[in-house]
């Protein structure tokens, strides 16, 4: 019986893995397709499409997206750390209500948020901030709840006795933050920043409203291109973005060491 269960478990598990991996396999295969019509031929492949990415048509949006994502990650990291400090660490008056408020943007559809931001900018006479400043601000609204969530969790898990121990050993408020709190919540901060980066880099619904003509983010460029043609260059863009995101995650993990935070410390 238990053997049957175990077999069933592995079959089921493999299906899930396959379900997750298959689209990526298809994209990967398409990105090396030998013809401009997407075809799958195991024996002939080309890197030609990746070479075509090396033009300003694709490079400019990529650089813009990466730049915005990096700025968004840093600003949301700082804002979310400050917010989580007040709410989760110092437990300021009304901290439960403030926490709900900080997480509330998650409940508003991104399309609605996009419309709201555009309406606000135009009615406040700030239309000129569409484009990069608007994208950064919009993405921060989107990413802060995620970052707050992750950083607050690491603050809730922080043993307050460590702060008391540091205090009785003569550490000032800033020294306690600098030498005890920050190093211990660093994984939380970096996982929050990683999420912010990925969310910003991949965002479509909100960016649709905020990009300026001629100054588009990578996902929006992909969508625009997709309206007119479906060729392996789109697959190549996806594969390249995927590799880029993986590299970013790897880099953040090297600095922040947040693997423990994400999969519960099996390391």
């Amino acid at each position: 019986m238990s053997k049957l269960l175990s077999v069933g478990y592995w079959v089921f598990f493999s299906f899930i893995l396959l379900f997750i991996a298959l689209p990526m396999v298809v994209v990967l295969a398409a990105s090396v397709s030998p013809t401009s019509h997407v075809t799958f031929e195991f024996w002939t492949w080309t890197l030609e499409w990746f070479g075509k990415l090396w033009t300003s048509k694709w490079l400019d949006p990529f650089i813009l997206s990466a730049k915005i994502a990096a700025i968004v990650a840093v600003i949301s990291g700082v804002l979310a750390t400050l917010g989580a400090y007040a709410v989760a660490y110092e437990k300021c008056p009304g901290h439960d209500a403030i926490m709900s408020f900080l997480l509330s943007p998650l409940a508003v559809p991104q399309i609605v948020k996009g419309v709201a931001i555009v309406l606000f900018l135009s009615s406040a006479g700030l239309f000129r901030y569409l484009g990069t400043p608007g994208l950064i601000a919009g993405h921060i609204i989107l990413t802060v709840p995620f970052a707050v969530r992750m950083i607050a969790t690491s603050m809730y898990n922080f043993d307050k006795n460590l702060d008391r121990a540091a205090r009785i050993l003569g550490a000032s408020w800033w020294q306690r933050i600098r030498y005890v709190l920050l190093p211990l919540i660093k994984p939380g901060i970096f996982s929050g920043m990683t999420f912010a980066f990925i969310i910003s880099f991949n965002n479509v619904p909100l960016s649709l409203f905020l990009v300026r003509p001629g100054q588009s983010t990578l996902p929006i460029t992909v969508i625009n291109y997709f309206e007119y043609s479906l060729d392996p260059i789109l697959a190549a863009v996806n594969v390249a973005s995927l590799l880029f995101i993986l590299a970013v995650i790897f880099l953040f993990e090297r600095i922040g060491g947040f693997t423990v935070q994400i999969h519960g410390g099996s390391k």
């Binding site: 008391r164 121990a165 205090r167 009785i168 050993l169 003569g170």
Partner: peptide
């Protein structure tokens, strides 16, 4: 506490 020069074992 940080100015009292006291030790504490938790």
């Amino acid at each position: 506490p940080e100015k009292r020069n006291i030790g504490l074992v938790f």
